[in-house]
Lab assay of single mutants.
Amino acid sequence: MKHYEVEILDAKTREKLCFLDKVEPHATIAEIKNLFTKTHPQWYPARQSLRLDPKGKSLKDEDVLQKLPVGTTATLYFRDLGAQISWVTVFLTEYAGPLFIYLLFYFRVPFIYGHKYDFTSSRHTVVHLACICHSFHYIKRLLETLFVHRFSHGTMPLRNIFKNCTYYWGFAAWMAYYINHPLYTPPTYGAQQVKLALAIFVICQLGNFSIHMALRDLRPAGSKTRKIPYPTKNPFTWLFLLVSCPNYTYEVGSWIGFAIMTQCLPVALFSLVGFTQMTIWAKGKHRSYLKEFRDYPPLRMPIIPFLL
């Protein structure tokens, strides 16, 4: 059985960083990364991007050496992705923050609204209902991160945790300040508006959870398998008939419901920014589905049925 020789060059300087002799033909890129780490321990596998061309796409960890368009002496180019952190850690951090930050404003801890309001309670029912909904949303997200989601990528750049936390924590503080303010004004149409908004919120939260469970069942634990998601017997998953990412559709719907319930401008802005970002993600995933699966359902749109 022939063996391969693998040289790894710096993608920027073309400097030879490592030479691997007698590499098995069936070795994966993940195994080559581990061998590279032995000579350069500062670059652990998650930091490494190996590619066939200095400006090309990163090879997948599961790619097999003998199936790549290389000879028995293969040249790979290395790029440092920077310090990495696990997706689970990032999600837990960015979701735990809003949960606790919101509660600080809800309980009106000292130095927020003035001494005479310390630890007082709002007289408006919608304020307490909003706290329950907000807390439920982020507790749900935390539990899904721990027990439901299966991540195709193990890590992301460390800098992302600061960007994500600034976004989630900042908006949580902004909306919580106004919703729990002693001078907060309840919704214009009173109980009817709150009940309608609560119904929207609850339905969308159930829908979002149902989609996450359906997506989880598509991917076996520990794998990166991708399949076309289809509706199940659960009615909340029937939205798969019309959109590629109904989890985002339901998520946006939840925040629209919360915005109607609280009639709070920061919540509306958070919903708008979230919708914009999720639309970008949904379009990317939709394109990926179309590219990977020739039999992908043609009627589906990325996030909004028939429109977007």
Rank of each mutant, 00 (worst) to 15 (best):
K2R: 09
K2T: 06
K2P: 10
K2N: 07
H3K: 05
Y4H: 09
E7C: 11
E7V: 07
I8D: 04
L9T: 01
A11K: 12
A11D: 03
K12H: 12
K12Y: 03
T13V: 05
T13C: 14
R14F: 13
R14T: 06
E15Y: 01
K16G: 09
K16C: 13
K16Y: 10
C18P: 12
C18W: 05
C18T: 14
C18G: 08
L20P: 04
D21G: 11
K22P: 12
H26G: 02
A27T: 08
A27P: 04
T28P: 10
I29S: 05
I29M: 05
A30R: 09
E31M: 06
E31F: 08
I32P: 00
K33V: 14
N34V: 00
N34K: 07
T39K: 12
T39V: 03
H40Y: 08
H40R: 10
W43Y: 02
W43F: 00
Y44W: 08
Y44D: 14
A46N: 13
A46T: 12
A46S: 09
A46Q: 13
R47P: 12
L50H: 07
R51H: 10
L52M: 09
P54S: 10
P54F: 03
G56D: 06
K57M: 00
K57V: 13
S58C: 14
S58R: 07
L59P: 09
L59E: 00
K60I: 06
D61L: 09
D63S: 13
Q66E: 02
Q66D: 00
Q66V: 14
Q66G: 10
L68I: 07
T73R: 03
T73S: 08
T75P: 10
L76V: 04
L76T: 15
Y77F: 06
Y77N: 10
F78D: 06
R79H: 11
R79Q: 10
L81R: 09
G82K: 15
A83I: 06
Q84K: 05
S86V: 12
W87K: 00
W87L: 05
V88Y: 01
T89R: 11
F91L: 08
L92G: 08
T93G: 13
T93D: 02
Y95I: 02
A96G: 06
G97D: 00
L99E: 00
I101Q: 00
I101R: 05
Y102W: 00
L103H: 14
F105S: 06
F105A: 15
Y106L: 13
F107T: 06
R108S: 00
F111N: 10
G114S: 09
H115F: 14
D118C: 14
F119P: 14
T120Y: 12
T120N: 05
T120A: 06
T120M: 11
R123N: 00
V127S: 03
H128K: 00
A130H: 15
H134R: 03
H134D: 00
S135L: 07
S135T: 13
S135F: 00
S135P: 02
F136W: 04
F136Y: 13
F136L: 11
Y138T: 14
I139A: 08
T145F: 04
T145Q: 13
T145W: 02
T145L: 10
F147I: 06
V148G: 12
V148I: 14
H149S: 03
R150I: 15
F151S: 11
F151H: 07
F151V: 07
S152Q: 11
H153Y: 11
H153K: 00
P157M: 12
L158Y: 14
N160G: 02
I161N: 14
F162C: 13
T166L: 00
Y167N: 00
Y168S: 01
Y168C: 02
Y168Q: 11
W169C: 08
G170D: 03
F171K: 04
F171R: 12
A173G: 05
M175N: 13
Y177C: 10
Y177D: 07
Y178E: 00
I179G: 01
I179S: 09
I179D: 15
N180S: 07
H181R: 09
P182L: 03
Y184D: 04
Y184P: 15
T185W: 15
P187R: 07
P187E: 01
G190I: 14
A191G: 05
A191H: 09
A191V: 11
Q192A: 13
Q192P: 06
Q192H: 10
Q193N: 08
V194L: 10
K195E: 10
A197T: 11
L198V: 12
I200V: 12
V202M: 11
I203A: 15
I203D: 15
I203T: 12
Q205R: 02
Q205Y: 15
G207T: 15
G207V: 01
N208T: 12
I211R: 00
I211Y: 12
I211F: 03
I211V: 10
A214V: 11
D217G: 10
R219Q: 07
A221D: 13
S223G: 08
T225Q: 12
T225R: 11
R226G: 14
I228P: 05
I228F: 10
I228V: 11
P229M: 04
Y230F: 12
Y230G: 10
P231R: 03
P231Q: 14
N234I: 11
P235E: 01
F236A: 02
W238E: 14
L239W: 04
F240C: 08
L241R: 11
L242D: 05
L242S: 04
V243L: 06
V243R: 02
C245V: 15
P246N: 15
Y248H: 08
Y248D: 04
T249H: 15
E251H: 00
G253W: 07
W255T: 09
I256K: 02
G257R: 03
F258I: 13
I260A: 06
I260T: 11
M261P: 01
M261F: 13
T262F: 14
Q263Y: 13
L265F: 07
L265Y: 13
A268D: 04
L269S: 03
L269V: 08
L272K: 02
L272S: 14
L272V: 10
V273M: 12
F275L: 09
F275V: 08
F275Y: 11
Q277P: 04
Q277E: 13
M278K: 09
I280L: 13
W281L: 05
W281C: 04
K283Q: 11
G284V: 11
G284C: 11
H286V: 05
R287C: 11
S288M: 00
K291L: 01
E292L: 08
E292N: 08
E292Q: 09
E292T: 06
E292V: 11
F293H: 14
F293W: 13
D295A: 11
Y296L: 03
I303N: 08
P305A: 08
F306G: 01
F306S: 08
L308Y: 14
